Amino acid sequence: MAMNGTITTWFKDKGFGFIKDENGDNRYFHVIKVANPDLIKKDAAVTFEPTTNNKGLSAYAVKVVPL
């Protein structure tokens, strides 16, 4: 089920960042999981599918909501 969130941290040079989800949890995401990576920036609103990996909470099918 899709969730909403906000990008809180973005490491462009490393290709990953973190999203604060609607429950207040931080989720890892990688640029290859983003549909529109050219719009990635700190504080951008996103929708995504929540999941977990071996390191904890993460996100896939991430879409940055255009302003």
Rank of each mutant, 00 (worst) to 15 (best):
N53S: 13
V64C: 05
N53L: 08
M1E: 10
V64I: 11
N4L: 10
F18H: 03
K20M: 11
A61V: 06
R27G: 00
V31I: 13
F29W: 02
I40L: 13
V64A: 04
A45K: 14
D43G: 15
E22T: 09
A44F: 05
H30C: 10
N26M: 15
G15L: 07
Y28L: 05
K55E: 07
P37M: 05
G15T: 03
K33G: 14
A44K: 05
E49F: 15
R27C: 03
G56D: 04
N54P: 12
G5L: 03
T6L: 08
A59E: 02
L57F: 06
K12L: 07
P50E: 03
V31G: 05
D25K: 08
F18T: 06
K41T: 10
V62G: 01
G5Q: 01
G15A: 06
M1S: 15
A45W: 12
K14D: 06
M3D: 02
T9Q: 14
P50T: 04
K41W: 07
T9Y: 14
G15I: 02
D25C: 11
P37V: 06
T52H: 12
G56C: 09
D21Y: 02
R27S: 01
P37D: 03
G5W: 02
F48M: 02
M1L: 12
I19K: 00
V65K: 09
G24Y: 04
G15Q: 08
P66Q: 12
F11N: 08
V31L: 10
D13K: 12
D13G: 09
G56K: 08
T51Y: 14
N53G: 13
A2M: 13
K33R: 15
A59S: 06
S58Y: 08
K14E: 07
D43C: 15
A59R: 01
D43M: 11
A44G: 05
T8S: 09
N4M: 13
F29Q: 00
N54R: 14
F16M: 04
K63A: 08
N36Y: 05
F48P: 00
V62H: 01
M1C: 13
V34I: 04
L67Y: 13
V31E: 07
K41H: 11
M1Q: 11
I40N: 01
N26A: 09
R27F: 06
N23A: 08
K42G: 04
S58F: 08
T9D: 09
K42E: 08
V31P: 03
T8F: 07
T47I: 12
K63D: 05
A61F: 09
A59G: 03
F29G: 00
E22R: 06
V46I: 05
V65I: 13
V46K: 01
N23S: 06
A45F: 13
G56E: 04
N54Y: 11
V64R: 01
T52A: 12
F16W: 12
I19H: 00
T47Q: 09
Y60L: 13
H30P: 05
G17H: 01
K42T: 09
G5R: 00
M1V: 13
S58E: 10
T8E: 08
A59Y: 03
N4C: 13
K63C: 11
A61S: 10
V34A: 06
Y60C: 13
A44H: 04
I32F: 14
I40G: 00
V46C: 09
F18E: 02
T47V: 12
I40P: 01
I7C: 02
K20A: 07
T47H: 06
W10N: 00
F16L: 03
K55A: 08
T52W: 12
I32Y: 14
L67C: 13
D25S: 08
A61W: 10
F18Y: 10
M3S: 05
V46F: 00
G5F: 02
V62L: 05
T47G: 02
K20R: 14
E22P: 04
F18D: 00
F48V: 00
K12S: 10
N36T: 07
I7W: 02
D38N: 11
G15R: 07
A44D: 03
V31M: 09
T8M: 10
D43Q: 09
L57M: 08
V34W: 03
Y60A: 14
T9L: 14
T8Y: 08
R27A: 02
T47M: 09
K12C: 10
K42F: 06
N4P: 05
A61P: 02
V46R: 01
E22C: 10
H30A: 08
K41F: 08
K33A: 15
K14G: 06
L39R: 10
P50S: 04
K41Y: 08
P66I: 13
I32C: 15
V46N: 01
D13S: 12
S58L: 08
A61Q: 10
E22K: 06
T47C: 08
A61R: 11
A35M: 15
S58T: 11
T6N: 07
E49D: 06
E22H: 06
